[in-house]
Design a protein around this nucleic acid. Structure first.
Lengths: 337, 337
DNA sequence: TATATTTGCTTAATCGATTAACCAAAAGTA
DNA sequence: TACTTTTGGTTAATCGATTAAGCAAATATA
């Protein structure tokens, strides 16, 4: 019908008052009479008035938009984090813009530019695996926009970080496998330059040492931890003259790849080789055998990330520092170990 | 350092020219000298100037923001659609705001309000399962904002729609099962009030008729098609005095639930009972046996949805009508059938 | 009654980028 | 030389909502 958005002016003209009065009436300013307020609200409803966020955002310097950048929304972990961020922020009047980096540094830089261009009030991000150069993230800081990192973070940026204790998680896993009587534990790991994977590797190495196991170099690999990577690394491990009797993969996807190979080779899991993944992806309960894994408290992390942003939300100046909120991960033992 | 965003004015002051000149210089207006342009661009770069999108959006009436609403990002189908929408739109200078309805009608209404409030230039959506009332979607239309539906659409809204041919897909599946010698084919279906599920049910019924099979009422059920629903329905089917020898589930999740029960009951798949899902979720290749399913061309649908929006993007008036783009789904035969 | 206070608005400036309208100086043309 | 055209800008209005400042009328106070 009207095919045109209603503005404050439309209401003002209709009631023959100023737009200022209309604006105040809608925000329940005490200097506007109840009579006028009621009249304004009635017309507003009739005309289906909705405030133009762009205008108020421009005026107030606040867009009420928060940018979230994840490697991919297509993992139950990130999807759940996202959902919780959205929930918390929506309840506080913020909207969320989601962008995916697809683990690409270039895409990540573009996304950051996009978010800054859109005038977001803050950015919550988990870094791409290949990201090493932090210039683009520094750019966010230099514009005075609060930056909250989760999962894949970076100490050197000196901003807030929310994640689990990866180092301890590795200990937990190794401990568990040792308890099961395993002697030769291999680790299909992520790249060392990504802090969380580095921590998992360190945790693995130190836990072995704690139990006086010797570290076999061939037992540790670095990759992107995809299903395909899991398959490749598993094949390599089986080809060793002394193959391991337990595998700890730093992602459920890699664990799944490993499991596929083990099944193809008719190797009994967990009898001959035990398997542990990381991330508690839903498919770990769908396959046979179900895979032992580590839960990363995605919901909690999403909430904490959002709440951390909110702490900065109404301050005019932003000064951030390294402030870590670390949750304890939870080992979920299933059939594969 | 500066902790303050650079504006046109900052550049203008530095060069002692008007902001209008700066604006034109940056957009390569022919009425600005090369010398001035170069000077402006240099300062812009030095000060790390980034245009305030809110201001230009307000002025031009275009936010360059497109809202996307899906039931959930946590499915490979929606995630892939999303990724492709984003890709196409980003390349044309648009940003994407993603919201999830979690299959809730209330959340969907809130999301629509949010998107309208944010002044998006268009909305691409797939409806929640429980949505029956179309008032909120009508609201989008009445504001003159282009609306593109995909997957879960609705003819009565008279807007563009992109999806697969659900009716034909059911035929394909039944055809396939009949070829495998199956006589008693059950259907774990979605709710009839959702058009796509209704079409799948109709396709199933008509295909049975085509092969002169009698329709057994107990063989058809309606549910939300979650894993749990799949388990429940499968149990019911097994409890019948004449259980089916083939299951066609309208979602992979329901198919997975059914498979879990079949395995628990030690029923051979596909020997005793064949199983077909819908959606080609990655886990269908991860379980044992791998599940036969239907691919919905998520990437293609995402691209088409984005391109359809772009057709309206620069027109001042929007008049939409029912305009369907239907892709043929692809049957992917695997071990379960 | 005279002054102070409160009520209920209006006016005008502002946020930052864009653009129509305008103008002075330089260059071109007859 | 006298007029036209082009060049290279400037001024001011605009998008819609918000808000500081102002002001007249109504009400309260002494």
């Amino acid at each position: 019908m009207s095919n045109k958005k209603t503005t404050l002016k439309d209401i003002a003209v209709k009631l023959n008052i100023s737009t200022a009065a209309v604006s105040k009436a809608l925000r329940n300013d005490s200097r506007i009479s109840t009579k006028t307020k009621d009249a304004v609200k009635k017309i507003a409803k009739d005309l289906d008035y909705q405030p133009n966020n762009l205008a108020s955002a421009l005026r107030s310097g606040k867009s009420n938009l928060v940018g979230v950048m994840v490697p991919s929304t297509n993992s139950s972990y990130f999807s759940s984090v996202l959902q919780n961020i959205e929930e918390v922020l929506n309840s506080k009047g913020y909207n969320v813009i989601v962008t995916q980096s697809n683990e690409s540094y270039t895409k990540e830089c573009n996304n950051i530019d996009t978010l800054l261009f859109t005038q977001v009030d803050g950015i919550i991000a988990s870094m791409a695996n290949e990201t090493v150069d932090l210039d683009y993230f520094e750019k966010i800081k230099s514009k005075g926009i609060p930056l909250i990192l989760f999962d894949r973070g970076e100490n050197d940026l000196n901003v807030d970080y929310i994640g689990i204790n990866d180092y301890d998680s590795s200990h937990m896993i190794v401990e568990h496998l040792v308890e099961q009587g395993r002697k030769n534990i291999a680790h299909i790991g992520g790249f060392k330059h990504t802090r969380i994977f580095n921590n998992r590797i360190r945790g693995y190495v130190d836990a072995l040492q704690k139990h006086s196991f010797t570290l076999v170099d061939e037992y540790v690999s670095e990759s992107n931890l995809t299903i395909e990577d899991g398959r490749t690394q598993m094949k390599k491990l089986l080809a060793l003259k002394n193959p391991p009797d337990a595998i700890y993969a730093a992602s459920d996807y890699a664990a799944l790849g490993a499991l596929q190979i083990l099944k193809e080779e008719n190797i009994a899991v967990p009898k001959t080789i035990a398997l542990v993944g990381f991330g508690n992806e839903p498919f770990t309960t769908m396959v046979t055998p179900t895979i032992t894994t580590v839960d990363q408290h995605s919901a909690e992390i999403g909430k904490l990330a959002a709440e951390t942003f909110l702490e900065y939300a109404d301050k005019k100046t932003t000064t951030q520092q390294l402030n870590k909120k670390i949750l304890e991960a939870k080992l979920i033992v299933r059939e594969s170990s």
